[in-house]
Amino acid sequence: MVQRISLAHGEGGELTHQLIQEVFMSAFSSKKEIQHDSAVFPIEGKRIAVTTDSYVVQPIFFPGGNIGKLAITGTVNDLAVCCAVPKMITAGFILEEGFALSDLNKIVHSMAEEAKAANVKIVAGDTKVVEKGSADGIFINTTGIGAISEQVCSPAIKKGDCVVVSGTIGDHGIAILSARNQLGLLTDVQSDCASLHSLIQSLLEQVDGIRLMRDPTRGGLATSLVELCEDFQFSVELEEDLIPIRREVTGACNILGFDPLYLANEGKVVIVCDSTNKDKVIEIMQNHKYGEEAKVIGKVISVNDSNGKLYSRTQIGTTRRIHRLNGMILPRIC
């Protein structure tokens, strides 16, 4: 039987991981780089970070943002979590024949505004138009280039290091789902879609002992942490009760049988840091408008663990393992 790409290949979980491993990494033989938020490499003697992402979100306008804003914040964040100062972004548009020019204008202006706020220049662009029915309105690719900061992470992870998340999780996932208007869900949840470069830059400048950062987008907090654990060979134990989740997000998850740990975020960063600095980290985050609800949510329980894993501590003190997203997030009745 012909093997085909399924939607699950794009959900950021197990199948995405496999696709990257088996198709892209094997062909491009570029090892790890290809799966990170950004690739870092020397060019003309300087260290540069590069990241690329395509944005295909539906609906293209949603509470808290639109595909254009997202295309900038997503790429700014991928650079920022790699300790790079975002410098320039390229923008590639694929438009469906019949797409309203007024919508394009709104989107492009959001991009310009967000780029300005993030102090990043949009330096190159491209537009392709495809036949009606050959795309879903608009797709945007942004590729970001940044210069590695003077202050960078010191990834010598130690047992006892803290895991911190900058705020409530699952907001983007639920905002998009309810904006889609398909499952009957009505919420006021806004996408958290935001550029985190300044929050992250403050942390790097003001605190030592930041080990690692990642933006838990597709696949959610769980998948991002599983990948960090695997890539950097350490294990983490979360205290699920401590994870900040908006009440409505919990409500929506209860109704539809979702696990908020797997819902996408677009304005959150998860950080591993030295436990002695955790109060400072929380303080800096909480003083920033995008980190007001920052919390310590877990700790590193082992390092040099060739098979790093993510666990969650239950209320009664036992632990359970948490895996990366499997398949797709679908509403369940049982």
């Binding site: 039987m1 399924s6 049988g257 398949g327 797709m328 679908l330 509403p331 369940r332 009745i333 049982c334």
Partner: peptide
């Protein structure tokens, strides 16, 4: 229901 999407039949699932 979402639950049934990945249940394997003889050759494929509804997701397939």
């Amino acid at each position: 229901f979402g639950d049934m999407m990945r249940v394997p039949g003889s050759k494929q699932s509804l997701m397939d």
